[in-house]
Design a protein around this nucleic acid. Structure first.
Lengths: 175, 175
DNA sequence: TGCGGTAGTGTTACTGTATAACAGATTATT
DNA sequence: AATAATCTGTTATACAGTAACACTACCGCA
């Protein structure tokens, strides 16, 4: 059974109803891909939608399970290829400590602030509740670049993932 | 065949000759464990020695292969349990991007400078030659702690892994 | 209009990374 | 000895990621 990549920006068979903010983010992602000369195909769109819908990082196999509801024949390469594409386009980020993926363009936000993909970013991960927040702190990325330079390294990318306790869990444990 | 955790600091069957700096680091690690109320058993000592001997990060299964020479029945849990212990004691660090482990107390160095385990550290990883260097940059760790605090997080640990190109490879590519 | 190139997906099989669960063994303590 | 705590052996399995090849759709073009 073949795929059909035709209606890239459009309605895949088995399309579900999506929240307005997710639909909006998908449209923005689509426009961005088009600008970059890339295609946000139905499959990639479905995977991105799954990541956007989730409020926390999703592993590749969790995504695969969800994807199978819409696309029964899906296998690991199906989801990994889509994830690779979305990573390249800067539409999602990977949380290394969790082997999981989060959307980069926050649903409902305009991502134009960062002028495109691959901006420096950091993750904050709560050990208690699993809450994962992405930030983009210039003091951190500057310090990282400088530390690398000091050691003779030319920094290309930095993985910064901070584990600790979020405000909510800190409050809960003090009460 | 049973293990025998008795002579923790001593001679395991099948003990190999080790460089003096490794032996010295092992003794320091042993003392440190004792102080912490933990036991550096023969198995853990063997795994630590393997990590100390290597000049680059080693994956768990690479360690397992090496370990099998001394301990034929070794299986994944054998090495993972030892690694977990060594990580807890701050004797090794994990490089998340490589799924690999490096010794924290550099062989031949006195580790007293850091006053114990779990000091903030960062990795520099060369994409070309794989060279991995551990640094301990206060500007980075301070910026990280502050960024976390700004978001209401209490930072416990930060994974900072900087990918790029080392001085040697930069020079080689310019020639 | 049929050819060939590119891109995307389906499919099978596999390698690599990590852990669960239970059994046996050792040591310290009672 | 009995007990508990800790460590290790052992089997099996879950989770993460990739290789390789087949097939389809689209595009440009002679």
């Amino acid at each position: 059974m073949a795929a059909g990549q035709g209606s890239a920006a459009g309605e895949a068979p088995g399309q579900r109803e999506l929240p307005a903010d997710v639909r909006h983010a998908l449209e923005a992602a689509d426009a961005r891909c088009t600008r970059a000369g890339a295609q946000l195909t139905a499959l990639r769109r479905q995977v991105l939608a799954l990541v956007l819908e989730s409020d926390q990082p999703l592993g590749a196999y969790a995504l695969l399970d969800k994807l199978k509801a819409q696309r029964p024949g899906a296998a690991p390469p199906t989801v990994y290829r889509a994830l690779d594409f979305l990573l390249e386009q800067g539409l999602i980020h990977k949380v290394e400590r969790l082997n999981a993926f989060v959307s980069c363009v926050e649903a409902g936000h305009d991502h134009a602030r960062h002028g495109g993909h691959h901006h420096p970013h950091q993750f904050l991960i709560c050990r208690d509740c699993g809450l994962t927040v992405e930030i983009s702190d210039h003091a951190v990325s500057d310090a990282v670049a400088e530390a690398a330079a000091k050691a003779g390294f030319t920094a290309v990318h930095a993985t910064v993932e901070i584990e600790g306790r979020c405000a909510g869990c800190t409050a809960a444990h003090q009460g």
